[in-house]
């Protein structure tokens, strides 16, 4: 049985599906408790029901976008693991970049189904979990104290201040650093693959990145200039799929 077949085997669906089921149960418990608490403290039932309906309808389209992310990752990691990671804790941009960094760390180069081994997969899976668990760790340790402090009035009008504003700059810097490092590596690899300034490296990653950026530009134009807000739900996954489709076409050249 090939590695990819093993990564799509019923046992993996069972392991990943079991964890997703547990998280779904947690959500149901929190949903029911919050609804009952809202009624008990005198909130309007119509408002509570409206929140549930609005949130459900709001989420359907972005969920389809996330599903496209599962499809995008299924070629290199099988379907069950991306299904778990994008249902629980993960995010599309995070999963892809960490999986790729993990692939480098285990020595299979970049994230690709053909190079995947069983050990590389389990190592990538563990590294993905270790890297993303910190939000959950912080929530478990600090949320009680943090929310009490916030309720005591240190926050005004819901706007972050002090360290929270600093956190915003940190998050932007992290994303920009991440993107710059990868784009710089595609450029460097193309220019200096077989020695400095030989221009013999692959241009495919640069071309794919350019197509994705272009399609993202079109999505944002539709949203901002044509007021098609709905495209926002698909912009990231849609741009990625366009870039990936372009890779197939460039491969035929």
């Amino acid at each position: 049985m090939s590695v990819m077949s093993q990564l799509n085997s019923p046992v993996l669906y069972l392991i990943c599906g079991g964890i997703i089921l547990f998280v779904a149960l947690v959500c149901v418990v929190f949903l029911v408790r919050a609804y009952r608490a809202g009624v008990a403290i005198g909130m309007d039932r119509t408002k509570l029901k409206r929140t549930i309906t609005a949130s459900a309808t709001f989420t359907v389209l972005p969920s389809v976008g996330i599903l496209l992310g599962v499809i995008a990752l299924s070629g290199s990691l099988g379907t069950p693991w991306p299904w778990l990671r994008l249902s629980v804790i993960g995010a599309l941009h995070y999963e892809t970049s960490v999986a790729d960094a993990a692939a480098q760390a285990v020595g299979i180069g970049h994230l690709a189904g053909a190079a995947m081994t069983s050990r590389a997969f389990t190592t990538i899976a563990l590294l993905m979990s270790v890297c993303i668990m910190w939000g959950m760790v912080l929530a478990a340790v600090f949320t009680k104290k943090y929310t009490k402090t916030l309720r005591a009035g240190s926050e005004k009008d819901g706007k972050p201040s002090g360290i929270a504003a600093y956190g915003d700059l940190l998050m932007s810097a992290v994303f920009i650093g991440l993107i710059s490092a990868y784009l710089g590596s595609y450029l460097g690899d193309f220019i200096s693959h077989d020695g400095r300034f030989t221009f013999t490296g692959s241009w495919l990653p640069l071309a794919v990145a350019a197509v994705s950026a272009l399609v993202m530009g079109v999505f944002l134009w539709l949203k901002e200039k044509k007021h098609q807000e709905w495209v926002d739900n698909f912009s990231l996954a849609g741009s990625m799929l366009a870039g990936m489709a372009a890779a197939v076409l460039f491969g035929l050249l």
Partner: peptide, 23 residues
């Protein structure tokens, strides 16, 4: 096999789109 270039290009596709969005 014909679709493998697509799946091998997930990362550049992601960073291209994100570059436009963030930069």
């Amino acid at each position: 096999p014909a679709l493998q270039p697509a799946f091998d290009s997930v990362v550049p596709a992601l960073f291209g789109a994100m570059a436009y969005q963030y930069f």
